[in-house]
Design a protein around this nucleic acid. Sequence first.
DNA 1: GTTTCGGTTCTTTTT
DNA 2: GAACCGAAAC
Length: 649
Amino acid sequence: MSVEKIDYTKELNSEQLAAVTAPDGPLLVLAAAGTGKTRTLVYRVAYLAGRDVSPERILLLTFTNRAAKEMLERAHVLVGPGISGVWGGTFHHMSNRILRRHAPLLGYQRDFTILDRDDSKTLVSNCVKELGLSGKEFPKPDILLGLFGSAVNRATSVQKVVEAKFRDGDVDPDNVAKVHGQYEGRKKKLGAMDFDDLLVNCLKLFREKPEVLGPYQAQFLHVLVDEYQDTNPIQAELVDMLAARNRNVLVVGDDFQSIYSWRGADFRNIMSFPERYKDARIYKLETNYRSVPEILEVANACIAGNPLQYQKTLRATRSSHRKPLVLRMRDGGEQARCVVDQIRNLCRSGYRMSDIAVLYRAHYHAMELQMELARERMPYVITSGVRFFEQAHIKDVCSLLRLLENPSDEMAFMRLVGFLPGVGPKTAQKLWNEMGGRFDTNDSAQRMKLKSMLKSAAKELWLGVEPILETYRAEHLDEDGGEAIFRFVEAFYGRHAVNVFEDSERRLDDIRELILYTSRFDKVQNFLSDIALLTNLDAEAENLASGDGEVVRLSTVHQAKGLEWPAVIVLWMSEGMFPSARSMEESSEGEAEERRLFYVAVTRAKDELCLCVPEVRRTRDGGMMYYLPSRFIDEIPREMIKDVRAGFI
DNA sequence: GTTTCGGTTCTTTTT
DNA sequence: GAACCGAAAC
């Protein structure tokens, strides 16, 4: 492969250069925030390509779709189109890709459905009902899923997780385990996997079928892993197994930024890497290009509260600027107005709206601000809580495709017939049972059977949909999902949406957008996998919504990871909000992780940082709740910040 | 017996 | 704003 000459010594600093040009073998790169971690990975890929490692022999694993996309794009710019052969993506993507090939070895069909969080919740809720366990005392589906996930990701039993979490014994571990068993069985019957199953089954495949693992081990000459501190034990083992043969494994991470322990991430993976790979070389990146020294001082001071970590100190390269601002005010309303003022000030001193981000611990922290921004007609985008592909109307139209692709997909069937008048959950269930727990849309006898069971009003509407089922294979709509969705909307869903949704205009626009989006897939199957694994249209949505324009970004700290802005404002730096009361209760590790989260928030800022500290919040019953300033604020040495009362700036 | 509608409650973080 | 619950409507 021909690679244009890259002058590594000129384009990288000495720390980065050492990591990029490191010899084969296990490598641990400890990259502090803003030290060019992505750059290092991308250049490493280029470096390997330049040493005639063919792209399909490189595996690049990331946590988010955004990170994968960014890295592959940058590698593309650096190396050229040949690089597209690299296996790059999230752990879930890789697992999906592998399982689509080998699923039958584990007793699944290749057309298995991927359940997103919503689907899983519905399914768990059904299981609870079936077992007659629904009641006030019994945990909600969301909680149950969390428990199942913890058990699976930490390779322990559900009972143990329940015992650890509900100390006072008001939840019966055996009942939870029963639900779990039921849930597992139902998924199997549906031919469906949830997010965890993708990883677990991939690991199972590797463990039990050496004839499958072997060729992958041989194929991947180099395995590169981004955000290694956020891997859970399953992911770590996947990496270890894939790299076992060639041992060229490069992991990049920053234990200071491990913020996903609640979904099983264990930063001991990164801490123990040198023990598991005795011959590992370790590289540290500590030269920070992002932030002014005043911000880095605060970051270093805050993380000093967490002792058990790799020692890293951020070294500034930028010249001095003003100190971060701690802004104290009475309540959320005042906070919202202050933020608007701050944004105006920043704009006056030359920043663009798109240079500014407002970060917070939880989505609801930004509610008052959203209203204030709307009132002031200040444009903003929010990396949303409700993700594009999880919105009801998107899932509605996809349910048709899901059923067409997987005749066992009961959830899709229920959703689809549930649109018909007079058909609710009970009737839908009855229909499904009558059909024998399977609806092969390609089978005319089955189609007839369904038709004969529908009442007149429902039947009439269904007749509009049926031609799509009939022609799906014949007209190769399985290679053009957009066309199938288009026909569905024309024949039925368009009218349905107008009746059901207040804002049907917007939703139908979304669907049109979705139809365009399908054109990049040559198989509906691939499209469905992709949207299940893609949580938001992220980059696309960003560019579409704003035309790359003048908008403030609102985001959770979690979703801001890996990003940077010239100016960052953090909301609700109050005890109980940030750190969140819940995670502090949950485990003894809670405080340390919240502190890392705060560290992530601080290190997103390049020039300006403003931390808001409201004192009271209205409670539901109309009362007032008083909040102390966050311990993270108190931990910052006073001389490092400018501490002001709102209105006295 | 089901569906549908309207009112109430409570918001962590994500693939 | 969506998920849950209870009561009216079919």
